[in-house]
Amino acid sequence: KELVSALYDYQEKSPREVTMKKGDILTLLNSTNKDWWKVEVNGRQGFVPAAYVKKL
Rank of each mutant, 00 (worst) to 15 (best):
S5H: 13
G23K: 03
Q11S: 12
Q45Y: 09
F47C: 13
N42D: 12
N42W: 06
L26A: 10
G23S: 04
V41E: 03
K55N: 08
V18A: 05
L3N: 06
W37Y: 08
Y10C: 02
E17D: 05
W37E: 01
Y10A: 00
S5E: 15
K21E: 06
V18F: 13
N42T: 05
K1S: 12
S5Y: 15
K54C: 15
V18M: 11
K22D: 02
N33D: 14
V53Q: 00
Q45H: 09
P15W: 12
L29N: 02
T32V: 11
K34Q: 12
N30C: 13
K22E: 07
E17N: 06
L7N: 04
A6D: 00
Y8I: 10
A50Y: 03
A6L: 02
P49M: 04
I25Q: 06
R16L: 13
V39M: 02
E40S: 09
A50Q: 05
V53S: 00
D35Y: 15
T19D: 03
A51R: 14
V41A: 11
T32C: 14
D9I: 02
E17R: 05
S31W: 10
F47V: 07
L3R: 09
D9F: 05
D9S: 10
E12H: 09
W36A: 02
N33M: 09
Y8F: 13
K55F: 12
L28I: 07
M20P: 00
S5P: 02
A51M: 12
T27P: 13
K21Y: 11
R16T: 12
K13Q: 14
S14R: 09
K55Q: 10
L3T: 09
Q45R: 11
T27S: 09
N33T: 06
K1G: 12
N33L: 09
G46R: 02
Q11I: 15
Q11R: 11
P15E: 12
T32H: 11
Y10K: 01
D35M: 14
I25D: 02
D9W: 04
S5G: 08
A6R: 00
K34T: 11
S31G: 11
K54S: 12
K1V: 14
Y8V: 11
D35H: 15
L56E: 08
W36T: 02
K38R: 12
L29R: 03
Q45I: 15
Y52L: 13
G46W: 04
